[in-house]
C-alpha cells in the first residue's frame, strides 16, 4: 500500500475525456515520475490530487484518507505540497517573508488571528525560515524582493517554501520547464539532495527525459488519459509502447 493511492480516477471536460481510468500507487519514500506526451492528462491528474479539480469517478487516498472534496489548503495541511510549473511565489514580499509564510502555516494551521504581535518577535519562525534559506543557498538574498529573483532562484525558493512545511509528499509539476541546462542540473542535484536528507516521497511530472532518468525510481507513462505502463526506469527506456507513444507524438 503506497502513501498515495489513485483508483479508477476519471475526469471529463465536456466532450473530452481528460482522464480515463487512472490507477496509480506511489510508494512511500520513493521518487515516482509521471511522464507522457502533451495532452496525456498529467496536469489534470495532478490537479485532482491537490483539490483544484474533483474527479468524476474514482478515489484518491493519501495515507489512508480520502482527499476528494477537500479544499486545497486542507489537502496541503494533510502533508501534500505542490510546486507549480511556473514558480508561484509571493512576488511583492521579500524572500525571507516568502519563507516565513509556510513556517507560520506549519505552526499555526490554516488560520490564526495573530494581529497584534510583531513579526519580528516570532523568533522560532524566523530561525526556521533562515535555516531553510541557508539550505537552499539563498541566505544572501533574504532581503531581496522575491519578484526580482532569477527563474532558477524562484524555483529554489518555491521548493524551499514547500519543504519548510515538512510535507510527506512533494508534487512537482515540470520543475525544469523553460530552464537552461545548468539550472536544470542544479535542480536535479537539489532534488537528489532533498531525497537524501529527508523522509519524503516525491512525485514528479516531467517532460525532460534527462531529469526523469536522473531521479525516478519508478515511472508511470500516461497517454490519452490512461496509464500505458508502470515500471522501473531501466525497463521503461526500452519499452516498445513508450517508444510508440513518444515517437507517435513527434511524428505528428
Amino acid at each position: 500500500m503506497g502513501i498515495l493511492e489513485v483508483k479508477n480516477v476519471g475526469k471529463r471536460f465536456g466532450g473530452l475525456q481528460a482522464l480515463g481510468n487512472v490507477n496509480l500507487s506511489v510508494a512511500e519514500n520513493s521518487v515516482h515520475a509521471i511522464i507522457g506526451p502533451n495532452g496525456a492528462g498529467k496536469s489534470t491528474l495532478l490537479n485532482c490530487l491537490v483539490g483544484k479539480l474533483i474527479p468524476d469517478t474514482g478515489s484518491v487516498m493519501f495515507d489512508g484518507q480520502s482527499v476528494l472534496g477537500r479544499a486545497p489548503h486542507e489537502i496541503n495541511q494533510m502533508g501534500i505540497s505542490r510546486v507549480f510549473q511556473t514558480p508561484e511565489i509571493f512576488g511583492d514580499l521579500s524572500v525571507l517573508e516568502n519563507m516565513m509564510i509556510p513556517c507560520f502555516a506549519k505552526r499555526d494551521g490554516a488560520f490564526e488571528m495573530n494581529a497584534i504581535t510583531s513579526v519580528v518577535s516570532q523568533k522560532d519562525v524566523i530561525a526556521k525560515a533562515e535555516a531553510m534559506l541557508e539550505d537552499m543557498n539563498m541566505a544572501d538574498k533574504r532581503h531581496m524582493h522575491a519578484a526580482s529573483l532569477s527563474r532558477g532562484d524562484k524555483r529554489r525558493l518555491e521548493i524551499g517554501m514547500c519543504l519548510s512545511q515538512e510535507p510527506r509528499l512533494l508534487l512537482l509539476d515540470e520543475p525544469t520547464a523553460g530552464m537552461a541546462r545548468a539550472d536544470t542540473n542544479n535542480t536535479i542535484d537539489l532534488l537528489k539532495q532533498i531525497k537524501q536528507d529527508r523522509d519524503i516521497t516525491i512525485a514528479i511530472i516531467e517532460h525532460d527525459m534527462h531529469v526523469v532518468f536522473s531521479l525516478a525510481e519508478r515511472i508511470t507513462v500516461l497517454a490519452q488519459g490512461t496509464p500505458l505502463v508502470e515500471d522501473s526506469p531501466e525497463n521503461i527506456k526500452g519499452h516498445p509502447k513508450v517508444r510508440e507513444a513518444y515517437l507517435g507524438e513527434t511524428a505528428h
Binding site: P72, H73, I101
Partner: peptide, 23 residues
C-alpha cells in the same frame, strides 16, 4: 503582525497561499 503579512500575501498570490495550507 503575522496577520498583516498574510494579508499582503493574499494580495500578492492567493493561489500560492492556498497551496501553502492557509485559508
Amino acid at each position: 503582525s503575522p496577520f498583516g503579512m498574510m494579508l499582503r500575501a493574499i494580495k500578492s498570490n492567493q493561489q500560492r497561499l492556498n497551496y501553502t495550507g492557509l485559508n
